[in-house]
Design a binder for these strands. Structure first.
Lengths: 358, 358
DNA sequence: CTGAAAGCGCTAACAA
DNA sequence: TTGTTAGCGCTTTCAG
C-alpha cells in the first residue's frame, strides 16, 4: 500500500493542506471538529510525514548523532568507532552526521563529555557505558530531552536508554565453555582469568562458563577463577604463581582482552604447548599464540558490527520510525587459526571489502 | 559559509539548472567545455547536493534493483531473500526498490527470468548463479547495458559481474577441518560428504578440508569422499552402505546443506553417538542432532548477511559512487549448541532484534 | 477558523 | 547541446 501524504488526507477530509498541517501539529486555529476528523483519517491511513520533504522545507538541519566512547582498549573501541563512523557515513546523503567525541578512558572525562553532548543539538547519543553510577541519571536526562540513548559494547541496567547493542556475556561464556569442553580430555581442569568480578559482564561470563563447562565436559571442572583487574602486571604475576602452585591445568578461559600476560607466563613456565586457551576478542599480538596452538579459539564480540548496528538502529528509528528493540545481542564470531586473517584487527590490507569482515 | 545549490552554480556559470544537473551527474549531452566550467565552480564552491531534496524527488522515480535467486533450498535462499528485501526496505525513502523475481530452482526458469530482468528498467541485478554455462554471456549483456550484476551466494568465474558476495569455500573447508581436528582423537579417520565435485565450490571445500585436516590433526586423515548430488535418497543409501563397509569412522564433514540423511543413517546404524559431524549451515531439523551431540559444529555461510551486503554494495555504489570490491567474502559463523538459538533460521521469535542475528 | 499559493533543492521530461 | 518547467511533500504566509 502506498504511503499517504498530507494532500491525500486533505482530499479525504475535504479541507486544504494547510488545515491538515495545523491539525497534525496542533498549531491551534482550528475547530475541534475538523481536527478530530483529520486525526482520525491520519491514524486510519497510517499517515507518516515524509522526512525528506520536512527537512527540505525546514532548511538544512542535518540529524546529528553524538558518539561518546573511550579512546581505545586494545583496538576494541577503535573498531566500534570505525563501525559507527563508517556506518554513519553511508547515510551522509540522507543528512546523518556523527559527532565523535571520545573520552580518555573509563572514569576519565566520561561524565564531562556526556554532559557536553547533552547540551548540543543531537538527536541521538551512542555511548559505551562504563560502571559510573551516575550514568543512569545522565541517560534519564538525555531521554527526557528526547535524545535517544543507545548503549554500545555494554549496557546500563535499570536505565531508560532506548536500546543497547552488545554481546551477550552469558552466551559468550557458554560458547567458550562448549568449545573448551571439546578441546580438552575428559576430567579436564580449567582456570578462568577475568577482569573484575564486580563487573556484571565478567561475573556473568564466569558463571555461565563454569556452569556450561561442567555440563559439556566429561567430568571436567573449573578449579580456579582469577581476577586480573585489567592489569598486565597483575595478570602475569598471578598466572606465574598459579603455574607454580598447580601442576595440572588443561585449559584456561580468559574472559577479558588482557590475554597476553597469560600467554607469556605460560611460555616462561614451558607450558605453552600444554595448556589450551580460549580467549576473548582478537588483536595482532595474539597471532603468534594462535600459530603455536596455545590459543585454540577466541570468542569475538564484533566491535565493528556493534558500531554499525548502533547506527543502523538510530537511522531506522529516525527515518522510518522503527521502534528500538529492548536489547540487541550479537551472535559472537569464533576466531580460529584458519579465519584469523579475516578479522579487521588482523588484516589491514584493503584488498577485500572490509564492511563485512566481522 | 552558506551551502551552495544547483541554482547558484547555474547563475555563476550562466547556464540553466538542467545543464548543471547534467554536468554534475555525467548524464552526457553536454559539451566538454560547459561541463568543465561547471565542475570547476562546483568544486571551488564545495558544492554538496542537498540530500533531502534528492530523496524527495527520487521518491517518485525509484531506482529498481532486480533480484533473481532460486525459491529456496532448505531455507538458505529464503534468508538471502530476506536479507536483500529488508536491506532494500531501509532505503525505500531514498527511492530504492527491489524487484524480487525468483525462479523455481537452478536450471529451471533461471535463464528466462534473467532474460526478462535484462529487459526491464533496472539499475542493478542481484543474482544467485548456478552452473549454467550461459550465465557468463548474460552477465556480459547486462553490464553492457549498464546494469551492474552482483552475484550472491556464489560467483561466475571469468564473468564481468561487478562483484560477488559469498563465503569463501576454501575458508569454510579449513575452518571445518580445524574444528574437526580438535574434536577427534589422534589418528582419526574422516569421511567427507559433498554435493557434486564438478561444482567448483564443493571441490574447493573438499580439497581444502582435506589438506587442512591433515595439517591440523595429529595423524588423522580423510579416508573417503562421497558425492550425494543433493539427493536425500542417494545420501542416505551411500551413507548406510559406507557404515556397513567401514567399521571405524571418527568424524564426517558434510559440505552441503543435505545433512539429515547422514544423521538418520548414522542413527539407524546405532552410531549417532560415535561419529562426530561438522556440517554446513543450519535449519530447524538439525536441532535435535545438535542436542544429541551428533553434530558438533556447523559452518554457517550467513545467507541473510550475504543478501544485506549485496544490497549495501549496490546502494553505496548508486548513491555514493563507491566502487565495487572485486569479491566480497564473508567470514563464516560457527554454529554450536550454545548459540543455536541465535540464528534466524532457528529462532523465529522476534523478541530480539533480528537484523543482526547472523 | 480555513484556503490558496509560494517555495525549499533537485530531477526528469519535454521544448527549443 | 541547452533551457524550461512541473512537480516530489511539506511548512508558512497571506488572504479570505
Amino acid at each position: 500500500m502506498k504511503r499517504i501524504s498530507i494532500k491525500d488526507i486533505a482530499r479525504l477530509a475535504n479541507v486544504s493542506r494547510g488545515t491538515v498541517d495545523r491539525a497534525l501539529h496542533q498549531r491551534g486555529n482550528i475547530s475541534e471538529q475538523t481536527r478530530n476528523l483529520i486525526m482520525r483519517i491520519a491514524a486510519e491511513k497510517n499517515y507518516k510525514p515524509n522526512p525528506a520533504a520536512r527537512m527540505l522545507v525546514m532548511g538544512r538541519a542535518p540529524v546529528s548523532i553524538g558518539v561518546c566512547i573511550p579512546k581505545e582498549i586494545r583496538l576494541f573501541f577503535d573498531q566500534v568507532r570505525d563501525g559507527i563512523m563508517e556506518g554513519a557515513h553511508r547515510f551522509e546523503s540522507m543528512g546523518i552526521k556523527a559527532n565523535y567525541s571520545p573520552f580518555e578512558r573509563y572514569g576519565q572525562g566520561e561524565h564531562e563529555r556526556l554532559k557536553e553532548m547533552l547540551g548540543s543539538k543531537i538527536k541521538a547519543l551512542i555511548m559505551a557505558p562504563g560502571v559510573d553510577p551516575s550514568l543512569s541519571a545522565l541517560i534519564g536526562e538525555a531521554e527526557e530531552k528526547k535524545i535517544h540513548v543507545v548503549c554500545v559494547a555494554g549496557d546500563v541496567e535499570g536505565s531508560v536508554r532506548s536500546t543497547a547493542v552488545c554481546s551477550d556475556p552469558e552466551l559468550n561464556g557458554r560458547c567458550a565453555a562448549e568449545l573448551m569442553a571439546k578441546f580438552v580430555r575428559p576430567g579436564a581442569r580449567i582456570v578462568i582469568f577475568t577482569g573484575m568480578l564486580v563487573h556484571p559482564v565478567h561475573s556473568k561470563e564466569v558463571s555461565s562458563f563454569t556452569e556450561a563447562f561442567e555440563q559439556f565436559a566429561d567430568g571436567g571442572k573449573v578449579i580456579e577463577v582469577i581476577e586480573n583487574h585489567e592489569s598486565e602486571e597483575e595478570a602475569f604475576q598471578k598466572c606465574s604463581a598459579l603455574l607454580k602452585r598447580v601442576r595440572r591445568i588443561d585449559g584456561m578461559y580468559i574472559s577479558t582482552v588482557n590475554c597476553l600476560p597469560v600467554c607469556t607466563a605460560l611460555n616462561a613456565a614451558g607450558r605453552a604447548e600444554k595448556v589450551k586457551l580460549v580467549t576473548t576478542d582478537v588483536f595482532p599480538e595474539m597471532v603468534p599464540w594462535f600459530e603455536r596452538g596455545t590459543i585454540l579459539a577466541s570468542v569475538y564480540q564484533r566491535p565493528y558490527m556493534q558500531g554499525q548496528t548502533a547506527i543502523s538502529l538510530v537511522v531506522d528509528h529516525v527515518f522510518s520510525g522503527r521502534p528500538f528493540p529492548p536489547t540487541c545481542y550479537l551472535n559472537p564470531l569464533i576466531v580460529l587459526r584458519s579465519n584469523l586473517r579475516m578479522f579487521r584487527e588482523i588484516s589491514h590490507q584493503k584488498t577485500r571489502k572490509e564492511l563485512n569482515l566481522n
